[in-house]
């Protein structure tokens, strides 16, 4: 236990960072994120961009599933809507990235809200299954609406540009992806401090009593779907500028499962959990790949086994966390922080 806090105002007690120590740590983290592209290789910058994209999308899923309690297994498809929208606007209307990325978000939000409509009548796992339906229906549109999506062959887009510079390398896209990820996280954190976030959590915990306390269920469920899909759409749009090629294959059901798995592994019900989960689940397959290529000289089968081993590890992480650490990495983090709260005076 820290000794009593001496907060003078309610505003101070409602702040995200309540102590100077927390603000210091946050400052150091921000500094590290700013310095990162100057000290890292292309490979790690690409990975950082991918992590940023996944943080944006996972934070959205956290809002929908972790806070509002509505399980979505269609999020990759909503991400696809954002990606195709951004690509179309960029290719055909020559929209700059700073317009097409939010536009992708809005398009996904609209689609997400439509597929959220069943959530009023359909609950729990049944809802999860309707979102799988959403995923397949959208996937089919990506495949068949060739005029816009390029069908199975997909489409490519021109690099984003800023002040006349083309943003081609991951190191350049980093400056788009990371700030949007930071913004996404900050938004989600703010949401929880207001009536909207409280309403979401109330719906998750007990929707019928939430309604009797004055919360319009349909409105807030759709709001949650729209906001989460907005996040997904933005993530998809950033993703497009990162890879500059899209095919329907990029937004399959398994990717949607990836995001739900990420928030479970990270820790349901906290923004920090979404970040932890996205970082961890993005890094694990990469670490396996590095491990396999390191092993290859001694054990030629290692590379061949990489794909199935990744599949197994992915499944085992979901099963393992749900069985042994249901509150995820965030809980582990909190335990560690608790231990060192008074370090070095007591360990």
């Amino acid at each position: 236990m820290r000794i009593g806090s001496a907060k003078q105002t309610y505003a101070a007690d409602e702040a995200i960072f309540k102590t100077d120590v927390q603000r210091l740590w946050f400052g150091l983290l921000a500094l590290a994120l700013i310095l990162f592209p100057f000290v890292s290789s292309d490979y790690w910058q690409l990975l950082a961009c991918l992590i940023a994209v996944n943080v944006i999308a996972a934070t959205g899923v956290m809002i929908l599933t972790g806070f509002t309690g509505l399980v979505s297994l269609g999020h990759a498809a909503f991400m696809g809507v954002g990606a195709y929208t951004a690509a179309y606007l960029s290719n055909h209307l020559a929209l700059p990235f700073w317009l097409s990325i939010p536009a992708g978000g809005f398009a996904a939000a609209a689609v997400g809200a439509v597929f959220g409509i069943p959530s009023l009548r359909v609950k729990g796992l049944y809802l999860a299954l309707t979102t799988i339906a959403a995923s397949f229906i959208l996937q089919s549109i990506f495949f068949n609406w060739t005029a816009v999506t390029g069908g199975a062959r997909g489409l490519t887009i021109e690099p984003a540009s800023m002040f006349g510079h083309l943003l081609v390398t991951p190191g350049a896209i980093y400056w788009i992806a990371m700030p949007i990820a930071a913004l996404s996280v900050w938004w989600a954190r703010n949401l929880l401090r207001t009536r909207v976030g409280r309403a979401f959590i109330a719906i998750r915990d007990r929707d019928v009593s939430a309604e009797l306390l004055g919360i319009d269920l349909l409105r807030y469920k759709l709001m949650s779907f729209a906001l989460a899909s907005f996040y997904a759409g933005m993530a998809g749009a950033v993703w497009v500028y990162l890879f500059r090629v899209i095919t329907p294959e990029s937004f399959r059901l398994i990717e949607s499962i990836f995001f739900v798995a990420a928030i479970i592994v990270g820790g349901l019900g906290s923004v920090r959990g979404a970040i932890f989960g996205a970082v961890f689940m993005t890094l694990v397959p990469e670490l396996l790949k590095i491990g396999a290529s390191d092993l290859a000289p001694y054990w030629p089968d290692a590379v061949k086994l990489l794909s199935p081993v990744r599949t197994i590890v992915f499944g085992a992480l979901i099963v393992g966390f749900l069985m042994f650490e249901p509150l995820g990495l965030n809980e582990i983090w909190l335990r560690i922080r608790q231990r060192f709260a008074l370090w070095p005076f007591r360990t």
């Binding site: 909207v196 409280r198 309403a199 109330a202 306390l213 919360i215 709001m223």
Partner: peptide
Amino acid sequence: FRGLTVLDNIKLGRHAHLRTSLVEA
């Protein structure tokens, strides 16, 4: 609501009288 603190549970009661919209939030 078990996911909320005592304070947030009480604040939730005022929900219908508050005006903060999603974007403001």
